[in-house]
Amino acid sequence: MSAEVKSIPMFMALVRRDVKLAWSQGGGAMLALGFFFVAVSLFPFGVGPAPQVLARIAPGVIWVVALLAAVISLDRLYQADYEDGSLDDLMLSPIGPIGISAAKVLAHWLSTTLPLALLAPAMGVLMNLPDQAYGTLILSLLVGTPALSLIGSVGAALTVAVRRGGVLMLLLILPLYVPTLIFGVGAVDAAMSLTDPLPHMALLAATTLIALVVGLFASAAALKLALE
């Protein structure tokens, strides 16, 4: 079938469109990055500039704020398409609902959460993160953030037809982020105290893989339900 051969261009077309939309006027990527930067820089003012205190809380703060920044950008993942009617066209694409949610999650990760991971070292400087922890911080965010996009996609798909569903989505998905948060912060903490971060990293990768298996199917099913 010729339709089989063409599914990669279809997939890539959607990824390109979403990355472009995220960085165009009114897109969520810049907002998420701005939120990440401003929220982390509030902590030195709030807890005081004592270097030891900041270093102690740095991994937790950076991870929690990155997670919240990802959530606020996920709010519109499917809703914008739902409101202007393009979700109908997406769902009727030959790549199917699972292909569509995979493309949208990949685009969200590339456009929004990946830049967060890349900005994290700068936030580490602000929080007086010890030198030996930077590599692990970036690596843990790279391994863990796909889970944020994948789990968030399920919440976004479930609340797509709900007006002001953003807060509802937050309540649905934040509890599911807990494993990613624990293992992500655990890895950076281990690197800070010069112990082996590998066990934490392996568990972090495992949560991402579980999210990959469950998230796409659940998002596709929720989207089908939303269009009824």
């Binding site: 472009k20 939309l21 165009s24 202007d84 109908d88 066209d89 009727l92």
Partner: peptide, 12 residues
């Protein structure tokens, strides 16, 4: 199909 909404992205 075409529906009530146009499915166009205003920024594009």
């Amino acid at each position: 199909q075409s529906g009530h909404q146009n499915g166009l992205k205003p920024n594009f």
